[in-house]
Each structure stands twice: as structure tokens, then as C-alpha cells.
Design a protein around this nucleic acid. Structure first.
Lengths: 366, 366
DNA sequence: AGGAACGTTGACAGCGCTACCAGCAACGAC
DNA sequence: GTCGTTGCTGGTAGCGCTGTCAACGTTCCT
């Protein structure tokens, strides 16, 4: 016969209902849709629940309702500052709500992503946030078949699975190069690490801008599959100089590399920006504080995470956004490392303070 | 009458059991303790499950077994590099296993931590990882009453709730100051931000080392509750110089501040280490690559996360570690920014390469 | 006044799995 | 030959909650 389980000692919904003098189902409704109850019963259930310290059993709820209140998040890296900002936005937006975040790390592998996706979908998540637009065809099929809202983050592109929020890395790179052109630079090198799809698109933007100006040369591009680091910035820049000593500017695919280039210039006593200009990507906090201050392309990472989670939760609750694809754009933040007007240089004090020049552009979808 | 639920269309354990020609309970055992089955049934269930593409329903499992396979992780910040390394270790160690990670951010508030703890414990997690040893008495009571293994990470101290892994921030700070003393520095300033309990203990270590040498002065200490940043390093250092222009070294409570101090010295044309030596804390990657390279106290953050999760999972599975408190120690990595032997300076090439001097010390518990 | 429409409530069964115990066969000890 | 003992298997009864539908009372309309 049956078991003699320890009954877990916890307060159940039935106890709350009994104390409140209502049926269990009414008590259940109180927690899911309080407006459906009469005010009298609502207050009775509320005080009963409080008095008993009732906490719903999520496992039972998930089993009975055939759905979970879990939002799956797939990101390629936990180390990269870029994703920690996005994550913070996601967590901030989900905090206090009924949905909990289930995070997994694809390590920049789309096969790993596919595996994790399979795992996630088997648990019927309430929603999914996935990074980028480069999934395996298998992953893509699973996402399209999934019966939950999905947000793709970090970039925008054609054929969204569902919702999409990000910006055009291609356009952002072109804007960075346009800025360098405007400052009079011509022999502009590209330094990139990891070469994940988004970095690749920044490279594509660089190449197209250079080709448009008939200035592209393959030897101006130095990339590696190695994960990014400040040290690597110095190494790649050293390679670039060896190949083409005559460069007058470097566009770095991210800010860590840019900082590495800055330090390498210091070691080699190369004057910035007089001899070589530097532009980074993402506008991490330290860029404004370096000596000289470093130009970068600002991206709205925290906002991206926050908005993605907000949109997703709205969609889960049945309020789909009017605008399923959101372009958060970017801004080229001009600082000393690429400024030809030296009189504009900021005074030699701690970073921050003086407003930076900005070139704001919405990225166009192509 | 009953409902006409859509039956979710998914394969259930009963179907697997039927195809394998065993009872559902035997099939269930296969997934939890395969050794308990005869080899014949084991293979039958295995192939049946594979054939049907069976995925266990975690909600049903959790409901029936009265426990979840969730490990709760409470950390104070998602932005801080320090925690992203720890997190990466935790995720790496849990990957592939049966436990999933539930992460929450306390934002350095022990009240928020208490709230989250209550939330977590209500769901009966399989285990918990909490940051630090400074919980509210209420939190402490909940942790002690919790019937799951718990690991406290980031530091070690007396009275562990259960397991503990970290190092002594106090001793690490003392070692950093001892190193500066050995290099002949005497007027050593302290720069700290956020002032969470661990930074506070680094300050305590600094104060005690200075007092031991009869060199302590209150005006050598500049701190703020503001979150840390590179820019803030410059600002605090500026304050420090204003108070005490005669300092010959700065101990920074973390590496971001140290980088900010480095840049501020550049702005003020203060020679490092000739006029002022700099020591940071954590040894983030960029420290080895800065110009000059920056001395720091290396902490084993990834290992800490990894080991914490591994220990916790072992404990959940009933194999408690012999050593419930683990001191991961630290190392003072001496680099140019605090080296009085200038001939030792590294050649002007990209960072990395030449081995660094190290002073390894296990932290003593006091 | 009769009935439709609405708002509110409750009974019932069951979501998919596992704890508990019992049963059964095989084997060794006495 | 009988009695444990061990190893494997299965039956039963839930775990705590919610979907479905029916039923009730009230209001508003014709």
C-alpha cells in the first residue's frame, strides 16, 4: 500500500484554503489571478497565506499546469565583460517577477548551443533568450518549433525566429572607420580575436568601408581564433606592425585589444594619436580613463539585456510587442586616441567629466 | 469529471517501461541507479529510452521525490570580473551533471541575500553556494537549519556553516604590504572602493601591517562606498595625493583601481615605481600587460568556483569531503610597478613570457 | 416576469514520477 | 531439508497543484 512519506512538514495550498474557508481551487486562483476573486475572499486568502507563511510548490505547479516559469538564457561566454553587462540587464528585468533565469554557456560553439537548446526545450521553458543569429539548421528548426516566445540578442539581421534586439555590428564597424577617415587616417589596420560571428561582421564592415575608399589591403588585417585579452592586443598589434609598419590607425574589434595596443605603443614609444590612432569597440568603462583616453564604439549592452528580458516576459504574458525587432544602435565616442584636433584634448585629470563627442547612428538592417 | 488535457504529446516513463517490457518503477530505477538492475533489463530499458527519445519530466520527479536537483548560487555582483571567474568555475564543474545552477545577485546587500535565501530554501535546493561569511543572523539561522549541503566561498573564517573555500583577505593584504616593505617603501597609501566585507578585511590587513611597523596613519587610507571602476582609481588616488603628497607606494584593494592609479600617474607624470609603487589585488589578466607591468596578489577565483561546485555535488551525493574548509591561498606576483631592482625590468615587448617572481603563502586562519 | 449574460465558486481527476513495502527467486549455512 | 540472506522486481498510493466543466447567484435586458 501507500507510503508513509514525511509529508515534508510544509504548508500546502489546502491548508491555506481551509483557514480562509474557501476551496483549494479558489485559493489557487488567488495566486494566479487575484482579480478573479471577490474582494472578500481575496483578503481572506491573502491573510491566511500570510499567517501560515505559505510558499507555493513550484514543482507541483509545473506538473499540473504542464509548463514551467523558467526563462532559458544561452550566452557564449561568462568571462567576457560584454555578456556580464547583458546578463545583469536580464537579471534586473526578471527580478521580482515570477520567472526564474536558467543560464547556460555555449562557449562560442553552435554545436554546444544545439545540445543545450535540446536540453532546455525538453523542459518546456516559458521563454528563451539566445545569442546571435548564427544557429545550426537543427537549432533553428527547434527554435521555430518551440511553443514559447524567443528573443535573439546581441545583433539584428534578417529572418528573426521571433523577437530580436541588438544592433548592426557591420554598420558600427563602418561608422568607426568613417570616423577614422574623417580624422584623416588612411592606412587603417584591423585587429580581431576569437572571431565569433559578431566580430566577423565587424571585420566585414571594416573591409567594406576600406574597399569603398579603395584602401583595403589584406595585410592590414590581423586576426586569431584565440580568446581575447589585453595581452593579445599587444601581440596582434606587433604582428600588424611587422606586416605593415606604415599604418596610421588601428581599429580593434574590442576594447581589451585596444588597451593592449595602447600599452604596446607605450612600450614602443609610439605616440597616440600622432603616429597611430586607436579605436576600440564596446566602450567599456576604462576607455574613458586611459591615457590617452580611447575612442570606442558604445553599445547598449545593459539595455539590451534588460529590454530583451522585458519584451520576453511581456510576450509570455500574452502582450506581444508591436515592434518585434529592435535596433538599439551604437555611438562612436570620440576621444583623444583618434582625435586630430589636439587642442580638443581633455585636460590631464581623472577620466570622466568633460562630455565626449558622439556620432550617433541607428544601424540599418540589410 | 476529469479534464481533457492535451497529454503534452511527450514520451513518458510508462511508455519506455512498456516497450522495454518492465514495470515503470524498474525503468525509473534505471535513470537513478542503473547498478540496481540486472544487466538484461538495464540494456532493454536503455535502448527503449533511446528509441523513444525519452526525456524525464523534472517537475514530476521533483514533486514525487520531494527534492529538486537545483544548486542555488548567491553572489553579490554580476559585473565584477572576480565573480565572473568564480561563476565560470561553478558552471564548468556542474556541466554535464544532473544538477542545474540557479543564480541570484545580492548586489552586496545582506538583506537582499536574506530575502533570496528564503526564496531559495523554500524550493528545497539540493545544495547552496553563498558568498562570504557575513550573513544576517536570520540568514545564518536559515542556513544552519537547511537540510542541504552548503559551501561558503570567497574567504575563510571561523564557524563555517558547513563547507568553506577561499582564502584570507587579511593575510593577503598583509603579504602585499610586506612585499612593499621589502622593496623599501614606507609611506604606503590604501585605496579601496565598495568596501564590502572582503575589501574591509584587506583594509584591516593593511592597517595591522602598517601598525606593526609603526607606520600607520589614518590619512593614508582613502575609501568610498561607490562601486569600483578604473576611473574611480584615479579619483581616489588624487584624493590620497592631496592628503599626503609624500607617499611612496599605493596598495589598491583591486586591480581596476590599480589601473586607474597607473593612468593617473601617467597624467601627472609620476614615475612608477621610482616615485610611487603600485600593488593591486586579484591579478586580472591585464596586470601583466600594462606599462609598467603591475604587481598584484593572485587569487584562485576559477579554481574556487570549480572546487566549490565539485565539493558541493560530492556532498549532495553523500560523499562529504574530509576537509570541509579549504584554503586556496594567494600569491604576490611581483612586477615592475613595485620592483626596486630596475635591472629586473622586463624587456619592452608584449606582456606575458618571462616568469614572474612569486611569493606564495597559504593564508592562516585566525 | 423570464431569460440571457456575467461573475464567482467548487468538484473532480490527474499531471508523471517515485517512496515504501512486499514478493519472489536463487543461494548458502546449518 | 529448512531457514535466513541477498538481489531484483513490481504494486500501490500518493507528491501538491491546476484544467475543465458545471453550478450557483446576481444583474441587466427585453
Amino acid at each position: 500500500m501507500g507510503r508513509k512519506r514525511t509529508k515534508s512538514g510544509k504548508i500546502r495550498l489546502a491548508e491555506v484554503a481551509e483557514l480562509a474557508g474557501v476551496s483549494p481551487i479558489t485559493a489557487s486562483r488567488f495566486f494566479r489571478n487575484p482579480e478573479a476573486l471577490s474582494v472578500a475572499k481575496r483578503t481572506r486568502v491573502e491573510s491566511a497565506a500570510r499567517e501560515l507563511g505559505y510558499v507555493p510548490n513550484l514543482a507541483a505547479r509545473a506538473l499540473a499546469s504542464q509548463r514551467t516559469e523558467v526563462i532559458g538564457v544561452l550566452i557564449p561566454s561568462l568571462t567576457n565583460n560584454v555578456f556580464s553587462d547583458v546578463l545583469r540587464g536580464i537579471y534586473d528585468a526578471s527580478e521580482g517577477g515570477r520567472y526564474s533565469i536558467q543560464l547556460s554557456n555555449t562557449r562560442y560553439s553552435i554545436l554546444q548551443e544545439e545540445k543545450l537548446l535540446r536540453l532546455f526545450l525538453a523542459q518546456k521553458p516559458a521563454g528563451l533568450i539566445v545569442t546571435g543569429i548564427d544557429q545550426t539548421t537543427e537549432s533553428r528548426a527547434m527554435l521555430e518549433a518551440a511553443d514559447c516566445p524567443i528573443v535573439q540578442i546581441m545583433e539584428i539581421g534578417p529572418n528573426p525566429v521571433d523577437m530580436m534586439i541588438g544592433f548592426s555590428h557591420y554598420d558600427a564597424a563602418r561608422a568607426a572607420i568613417a570616423h577614422l577617415f574623417a580624422q584623416g587616417h588612411r592606412k587603417i589596420g584591423f585587429v580581431g580575436a576569437r572571431m565569433d560571428p559578431r566580430v566577423q561582421r565587424r571585420l566585414d564592415g571594416y573591409v567594406s568601408a576600406m574597399k569603398d575608399a579603395s584602401l583595403f589591403e589584406q595585410r592590414l588585417v590581423v586576426t586569431t581564433a584565440t580568446p581575447t585579452s589585453v595581452t593579445l592586443g599587444g601581440t596582434l598589434f606587433t604582428d600588424l606592425l611587422a606586416r605593415e609598419p606604415g599604418i596610421d590607425a588601428v581599429f580593434c574589434a574590442n576594447d581589451d585589444l585596444a588597451l593592449g595596443v595602447l600599452f604596446e605603443c607605450r612600450r614602443r614609444e609610439i605616440a597616440i594619436p600622432e603616429q597611430i590612432a586607436i579605436v576600440g569597440f564596446n566602450d567599456l568603462e576604462f576607455m574613458a580613463s586611459a591615457v590617452p583616453t580611447l575612442t570606442s564604439v558604445r553599445t547598449n549592452r545593459y539595455e539590451m539585456g534588460r529590454t530583451a528580458a522585458t519584451m520576453l516576459i511581456e510576450a509570455i504574458d500574452g502582450r506581444r510587442p508591436e515592434q518585434p525587432v529592435l535596433d538599439l544602435g551604437f555611438k562612436v565616442i570620440e576621444r583623444q586616441s583618434s582625435s586630430s584636433r589636439h587642442s580638443d584634448s581633455r585636460p590631464s585629470t581623472s577620466g570622466g567629466g568633460a562630455p565626449n563627442k558622439m556620432v550617433a547612428l541607428p544601424s540599418s538592417h540589410d
